[in-house]
Simulated scan of single mutants.
Amino acid sequence: MDTKVAVVTGSNRGIGFEIVKGLCRKFDGVVYLTARNEERGRQAVKQCEESGLHPAFHLLDVTSEESLQQFAEHITRNHSGIDVLVNNAGILDFDKSVSNYEDSKRLIDTNFMSLLTVSKILYPLLKNNARVINISSDWGLLSNIKKQIWLDTLVKEDLTVDEILQFVNDFLQAAKNGKIPFISYAGHYGDYKVSKVAMSALTFVQQRQFLREGKDISINCVHPGFVKTDMTKGMGDFTPERGAHAPLYLAVDAPQTLKGTFMWHDCHQVNWDD
C-alpha cells in the first residue's frame, strides 16, 4: 500500500511543532518533522514520542538548495511523493521594527525566496490531490503595502512570479536607501510584511498555474493568529496549539475544492486584497 506523506518545514518548535503533533493524530501516513538544526529537531521528535506520537525526522534548511535536494532524494527513495506540504519555516526579529538592508535581505531570503527553491525542488514530488499550506500572517494582506504601483500590480489576474520578484527587490532597494524609505514602503516590520504579502501573491499565482496544468493540487495561505511563540517573544493572543488549528484544517479536513484562498485563523476565507 502506498503510504501518504506529510512534510512540515521549520517544525521543531512553535506553530510548526503543533502542526506536526496535530498531523500525527489526524493524518493517515508518515509525518516529517524537519529542522535545520539536527539536535533541536531530534529533541522535538523525542518530545512527540513522550506523548505517544511518532513523526519521522529529516534535516532540512529551506534556504539551502543542497539541503532541499537531499531531502527530495530521501522522499524519492522512500516514498511515492508528498501528499501534504506545510511551508512554515520563517524568521522575524521582533526587537527590530525597522531593519537594515542586510537583515531585511536575510529575512526575505528565508521567508519568501526559499519558497521559490522549495517550488523548484519539492513541488515536482507533489501527488495529485496534494495540499500545500503556506503559513502567512495578517501582515500578509495586501493592505499592509503603501506603494500604489504594487497595490495595482499584485492583484492582476495575469500576475507573474517575475513581477512578485520585482516587488520584493523594489522593497530591498528602499531598505538599502535608509529608514525613511523603509517605513514609507510598508511601515514598521516592513520586511516581514513584504515577505508575507509576496508569499500570498505567490500562492495565488501558483494555484492558477496548477489549474492551467490540469493538476488537482490545492495551495492556500493562512493567518494562524497572533501566536505566543519564541519568535514573538511570548506575546500574542493564542497558544501555538490554537495557532495550528486553521493550518490543520487545510491539511486534513478542508474540501479539496478549496483552492487559492487566504484563510483566517478561525477557518473562514477573507479577501486578501481588501
Rank of each mutant, 00 (worst) to 15 (best):
V7A: 06
A186V: 08
V194K: 03
G187I: 12
H74P: 00
N144R: 11
N220C: 11
A251Q: 04
V5H: 03
P247R: 05
F71Y: 05
R106P: 00
L59F: 11
W139D: 12
L258Y: 09
Q206W: 12
F226D: 02
G16N: 04
S80V: 14
F210T: 04
E102K: 14
V84I: 15
D61K: 05
S137D: 06
D93A: 12
L202D: 10
T110V: 08
G81C: 06
T76K: 15
L122S: 02
V86T: 00
D274W: 14
I145D: 01
I217L: 07
L122C: 08
N128H: 07
A198W: 06
Y249I: 00
V132S: 02
S119Y: 10
A89W: 03
Q43Y: 06
H223N: 15
Q269S: 14
E49Q: 14
E157D: 15
F167N: 05
I135Q: 01
E38I: 14
N169E: 14
K146T: 01
V252A: 09
I149W: 08
L107Y: 03
L116Q: 12
A254W: 03
N87R: 04
M113F: 09
N87V: 03
F167W: 10
I19V: 13
W264P: 00
A251W: 02
N144D: 07
D170F: 07
A6M: 04
D103T: 10
G14S: 04
T3Q: 14
A244C: 13
L53Q: 02
N128Y: 00
M263C: 15
R13T: 11
E66W: 00
G10M: 02
V252Q: 01
H74N: 10
V168P: 00
V155Q: 14
S137L: 12
T3W: 07
G178C: 05
A251M: 08
K215T: 02
K196N: 09
C267F: 02
Q207K: 10
V7M: 06
C221K: 01
D170E: 10
Q69E: 15
D109A: 13
K196E: 04
L122A: 00
S67D: 11
N12V: 07
N100P: 11
A244Y: 04
F238D: 12
C267I: 08
R208K: 15
K179V: 13
C48H: 05
M263F: 12
I15V: 13
N78T: 09
R40A: 11
I91S: 01
L151T: 04
F27Q: 04
K146R: 10
G243M: 08
S67W: 06
D2H: 13
N12H: 05
T153R: 15
H54T: 13
K179F: 00
A174R: 09
V86F: 01
A130W: 02
Q206F: 00
S137W: 02
D237P: 08
E102N: 12
Y123T: 01
M1P: 11
V168M: 09
A254Y: 05
R242T: 13
L23C: 04
G29S: 05
